[in-house]
Amino acid sequence: MKGYNFAYLDENTKRMIRRAILKAVAIPGHQIPFASREMPLPYGWGTGGIQITAALLGMSDVLKVIDQGADDTTNAISIRRFFALTAGVATTTHTAGASLIQTRHRIPETPLRQDQILIYQVPMPEPLYRLEPNKSAAMRLHALADYGAMHVKLYEDITRFGRVATAYNHPVMVNRRYLMSPSPIPAYDNPKLHRMPALQLFGAGREQRIYAVPPYTEVRSLDFVDYPFHPGRAQHNCSQCGSDDSYLDEVITDNDGGRLFLCSDTDFCQNRQKAAK
C-alpha cells in the first residue's frame, strides 16, 4: 500500500522488536520489555502479536490469523486484511500452508512444524500479577525463581474445588526456570506447548512485553504429583466433523436450551469434513 512501509512498521521499529525477540529466544519464558508502538487498532485486539508479526514478515511468507481457533471472526479477518494490504503477503486459512500463524487464545489442532512460527496475542504477560501486583516485586520473584506463591494458589484450588480450577491460562514452567503465562489458551492446549517444533512467540502490546518458547523446549504445566495436571475437554463429538478429541465450543442454538458442540479450530474441522466426503 502506498505511503506505508512494508508491513506498516518502519524498519527501525522492526529491528528494535527483533532484538527483543532474540533476547526472548535466548532466555526461554523470560519477559523482555520492548517499546511497544501505537497500532491502528485498540489494545486488547492483539497489538503485541501484530507488532511481532510485522517485524518477522517477509515477502514470501504466508500468513494465517485465528481468533479462538477461527479464521472468520472480525478480529482475525481484520488483522489478515491489514497485512495483506500493508505487506501484500499471501494469506491462508490452512494451518499446514502457513509459515506464520498469529493466534488469539488457541493453538491449532494440526501439529506445527519446525519451519513455522506461532505468534500469540497476550493480554497479561505476568503470571504472578494476581499474587504480586507490584511489578518490580514480581520481577524479583522471577529472578529468585521463587514460585511458592503460585503453588499456594493451586493448593487452594484443590482444597476448595477438589481440583486445579484454572480452565484457561494455566501457568507453565519453561525450561525448568521461568514461570510463564501461556496466554488465555484453554488448559486443553497446554500439552501442545511442550517440545513444539515451531518457534512460539508471545506479544503483549499494552504491557510492552515479548517472550518466547524456542523449538523443542520443555514446557510443564504446574501441578502436584498426586494431583497431576489434566487438560479438560467437553465430553462430546463435534456436530460437524464428528471429532472426539479436538477442542470444542458450545453453541446455543435456540431458546429452549438446545445446544451443539463444534470444533473451535475451523480449519481442522473443514479438513475433516472434506476428507469424509
Binding site: Y147, G148, A149, H151, I158, D223, F224, V225, D226
Partner: peptide
C-alpha cells in the same frame, strides 16, 4: 512449596 515440595497430600 517454595522449597520444591510438589505433593499435595
Amino acid at each position: 512449596m517454595a522449597a520444591g515440595d510438589r505433593h499435595y497430600g
